[in-house]
Design a protein around this nucleic acid. Sequence first.
DNA 1: TGAAGTTACATGCCCGTGCATTCAATGTCA
DNA 2: TGACATTGAATGCACGGGCATGTAACTTCA
Lengths: 128, 128
Amino acid sequence: MDVKTEPNVCDKWAETLRVYHNTSCELENELQSRHSLGLSEFEVLLELCGQCHGGDGKAKMKDLEARMYLSQSALSRTVTRLEKAGLVTRAACDNDRRANFLMLTPAGQERLDEARPTHKSVLIKHFA
Amino acid sequence: MDVKTEPNVCDKWAETLRVYHNTSCELENELQSRHSLGLSEFEVLLELCGQCHGGDGKAKMKDLEARMYLSQSALSRTVTRLEKAGLVTRAACDNDRRANFLMLTPAGQERLDEARPTHKSVLIKHFA
DNA sequence: TGAAGTTACATGCCCGTGCATTCAATGTCA
DNA sequence: TGACATTGAATGCACGGGCATGTAACTTCA
């Protein structure tokens, strides 16, 4: 707790807050207006597609939950919304009938592919 | 839009998301459980005290709004909560009777002083 | 095997937020 | 001065989130 570090933490937090707020608001607006996707919905699709985790378009709810900043209930409802929109399907797991497998539908994959450039361009705008 | 920068923006965003989420959750929890203050309530008190802006414990709503990441309506309600808790008072402004002056009450100053170390220690934990 | 604990998920409830609207107080301009 | 635009703030409304709970489906252990 060096005295010199103390004023810095406030500045760092302020900067994090600023970047987070600006970026997430713009992501939310762009994804919603152009692709009818909320940010967390997009993130579920992205995580489900799982390019970053070697996934194959399937995942268990618990695995998703562990990778995302969403509570179990919020994730459950987000998936429900995606399912109603036809972008995702829930399938029972054979081994454990409590667990849900989630799968990207073709429509889901398509929507994700459409939205990805929007997402990336916002990130580039704010981070490049 | 150098190709080499593109993968980096995702990582930067993921990192921002991680830090923001962890820090804000812990701030929220600690401030709430120890001082009965939500994070945005604390931030209003802090901004009102205005050490960082040369304030004197007073501010107009519009000025606060401009400095914070809250919509006008959210700020209005946050101030209402603080007022009900006796930590802040609204006073009409003489020059412009639409505008509100906000003032920290002694209780508000005291609560803020109590909460500040909690706030700072969380920030140090996450940023130092 | 059966009772008690644990896990995965859905759902009821409440809360904080943003958007759109409203209302009163100001400002502007002919 | 009077009509119209603008501004500061409060509020109705809907939505997404977290916490607590319910309920099935496992698991453990004697």
